[in-house]
């Protein structure tokens, strides 16, 4: 009967966490620290418009999302709520790694800040994009979105079944034109392009980013996780420093699976999951355990109620 902390991925356009920041001094202290580590102002981390250049924008966005997730963790820790199991997809997996003690907070934020120096792709490279695909709940994923083998389209994520179990939501990354063509070829509603996401994450198209970050990640001082930490790249619990380094290295180009994350967390005993920040929307997906979204001060009460009602054993081990 374990409490799991689950962290989403991606960099959204909505600002989350203002109320939490204002309500909790421990969160404001963290943002001050993050500002020192990253060179961004607290306002930039918290709510200001992200910079325009693509990689710079992505870097600042990841810092914003990570600061929020860790800040919420710190607020919950003040209430005596610590995770027994940690998991996340993409950026969230790195945040989870940090809380598992595999990498320090400073090192994580400095890595995210370093990513802003990633060389932009040449202007004549095809425009990239992301889309969500809605597939039948059962069956082969590759065939489900009917994009397999299409040039410029990659299956980059599996978010699993919808809340009613009727459908399955996949993420497609690729060249924008190829995604648009796929969208047009399929029945309406099958593929939904995400116009504000111009980076083909978790696909081979992010190879240049992976190559740029590889030396930096190779030099980072990873340690073995002190808490169960699950991977988003395969169904696995990471147990060594090298496991975590490998996750950081492959994350840009390899597909992610929220299904694998949640199933592994379930196997690790999770019976209640806290979804940190606004990174995974409510009510869309089916999880193998109850979840409570934590992004506003009033959610703390819901967390405490759920911990009591689900009879959770609170972990004696404190996350980092």
């Amino acid at each position: 009967m374990a409490l799991g902390f689950l962290f989403g991925g991606g960099v959204g356009t909505e600002v989350h966490g203002l109320e939490m920041y204002r309500a909790h001094p421990v969160m404001r202290e963290l943002y001050e620290q993050v500002s020192e580590w990253t060179g961004l102002t607290v306002g930039q981390i918290l709510e200001e418009e992200l910079p325009e250049p693509q990689e710079e924008r992505q870097s600042a966005g990841t810092i914003r999302e990570t600061a929020l997730a860790l800040g919420i963790h710190d607020v919950l820790a003040e209430q005596g709520l610590s995770p027994a199991v940690l998991g996340g997809v993409s950026l969230g997996a790195m945040t989870a790694s940090c809380l598992a003690g595999s990498i320090g907070r400073r090192e994580l934020f400095e890595m995210l800040a370093h990513a802003r120096h990633t060389p932009e792709l040449p202007a004549d490279e095809p425009e990239q994009g992301l889309a969500l695909a809605f597939a039948p709940a059962e069956g082969d994923l590759g065939a489900a979105y009917r994009g397999e083998g299409r040039a410029g389209v990659h299956l980059s994520g599996d978010f699993g079944p919808t809340a009613d179990g009727a459908m399955r939501i996949l993420m497609l990354s690729g060249e924008r034109e190829a995604l648009d063509a796929l969208t047009a070829d399929l029945p309406p509603g099958t593929v939904a392009p995400l116009p504000d996401r111009p980076i083909a994450v978790h696909s081979p198209l992010r190879g240049h980013f992976r190559a740029f970050m590889a030396p930096y990640i190779d030099a980072m001082p990873f340690k073995a996780p002190e808490l169960p930490l699950v991977s988003c790249l395969e169904r696995k619990t990471l147990t060594t420093a090298e496991d975590v380094r490998d996750l950081f290295d492959r994350n840009p180009t390899d597909p992610i699976s929220l299904v694998d994350v949640c199933d592994e967390m379930k196997d690790q005993g999770v019976r209640l999951g806290l979804i940190m920040g606004g990174s995974i929307p409510d009510g869309i997906l089916r999880f193998p355990f109850p979840v409570v979204h934590v992004g506003r001060p009033e959610h703390i009460q819901q967390v405490l109620t759920s911990v009591y009602e689900f009879g959770l054993d609170l972990s004696p081990v404190r996350a980092r």
């Binding site: 991606g10 929307p281 506003r296």
Partner: peptide, 17 residues
């Protein structure tokens, strides 16, 4: 079905990533 306490977070699918 599947009644749970009301969650006051975003429920837009675009927020999945």
């Amino acid at each position: 079905a599947n009644v749970t306490p009301l969650q006051t977070t975003s429920s837009a699918p675009e927020g999945l990533y």
